[in-house]
């Protein structure tokens, strides 16, 4: 039995590694010669971290260099954003960020960097669908009923979210705007506690990532109304899309992309994009994303052009919504 225990982890703990002091001059042609750091702006174990670790392995294989995931948390991901914006433009520090990249300028008026000017985009990774869900004994049974109910009871309905700037808050804002009501928002510190109170019936409804809600919907612990993507989600075949159910304006996904500092040579960006493309075709990556209720983006979106277009479009979408709602990150 003893033979079956992978000792690699022990070895990596005891190995003396001075690679961290490396860095050095970048020759785009010979990139990568060194370990690459993939900076995750959220905690280890979160959905974005999971996506990062999923793609890191096949990307590293393709590039022929190690990729190390580093979690730099704080201030809605803007600490990590600032770190990579200021990093050497040699391709050895890569940022993965989600929809928050496009909302940061509106949420943080004193943001020290510009998502469009201080970064080069590498490509989109995945677009995690969201679901509109409610406590199990909430009256409305369908999305249409929910819209009517919310309009009639705008004073008493409570809308939970996972905190300022979280995807669930953004989706909530979109719902309020689409329905034309101003609801009582109940913020939580992350999706876990919000979902707990939803299951426990303390709050009425919310909108959050499939990753977090799918298993609860399947088990009947919460009520699912719709998914917020143009296409239905495989794991939740019974749920219509918001467009089908009458709220076409509520279309939102937690999209992820890779970024490098703005001065990074194009040759390096091309290599990273190519590696990302290979990683997203990896069967293991596709399967694992499946358990998260998502899929890799189609191949044509794994390009800097498509990524930049998405980023611009999303900044234009969210900036007025956030400004109108008066929400601020600081």
């Amino acid at each position: 039995m003893r033979r079956h225990i992978p000792l690699a982890s022990l070895a990596c703990l005891t190995m003396l590694s001075l690679a961290a002091c490396g860095g050095g001059d970048a020759d785009p042609a010979s990139y990568p010669e060194d370990e690459i750091t993939l900076v995750v702006p959220f905690s280890a174990g979160g959905p974005t971290d999971t996506v990062a670790r999923l793609i890191a392995e096949p990307m590293a294989e393709e590039l022929g260099a190690d990729i190390v995931v580093q979690n730099v948390e704080g201030a809605g991901g803007t600490i990590a954003g600032g770190q990579v914006a200021d990093a050497d433009a040699d391709g050895y520090e890569v940022l993965i960020h989600h929809i928050g990249m496009s909302t940061a300028p509106a949420l943080y008026p004193d943001l020290a960097y510009s998502p469009l000017e201080d970064f080069k985009t590498v490509g989109l990774v995945t677009d995690v669908p969201m679901t509109i869900v409610a406590r199990p004994d909430f009256e409305p049974e369908t999305l249409e009923e929910l819209v009517t109910y919310v309009k009639e009871n705008a004073d008493t309905v409570t809308l939970a979210n996972a905190g300022v700037g979280a995807a669930s808050q953004l989706c909530g804002l979109l719902i309020e705007q689409a329905v034309g009501v101003d609801l009582t928002e109940v913020p939580y510190d992350g999706t876990g506690p919000a979902l707990t109170d939803l299951v426990g019936g303390q709050v009425d409804f919310m909108c959050d990532q499939t990753t977090n809600t799918a298993s609860q919907i399947q088990a009947g612990e919460i009520k699912g109304y719709a998914v917020t993507t143009p296409e239905p989600v495989e794991a939740l075949p019974d749920l219509p899309t918001t467009a089908e159910a009458g709220l076409p304006d509520v279309e939102v996904g937690v999209w992820h992309g890779l970024y490098v500092p703005a001065d990074t040579p194009d040759e390096i960006v091309e290599k990273l994009t190519a590696a990302l493309e290979v990683a997203l075709e990896d069967q293991n990556v596709i399967d694992q994303m499946g358990t998260l209720g998502t899929t890799p983006v189609p191949a044509e979106d794994v390009t800097p052009e498509a990524h930049t277009a998405k980023l611009e479009e999303q900044i234009d979408l969210w900036t007025p919504i956030i400004e109108e709602s008066g929400v601020t990150g600081g």
Partner: peptide
């Protein structure tokens, strides 16, 4: 911290041309 735990802290920083 560096050898056993492999924390990503550089031994010599940018100010020293590391």
């Amino acid at each position: 911290f560096v050898a056993l735990l492999q924390l990503k802290l550089p031994l010599f920083g940018d100010w020293l041309g590391g």
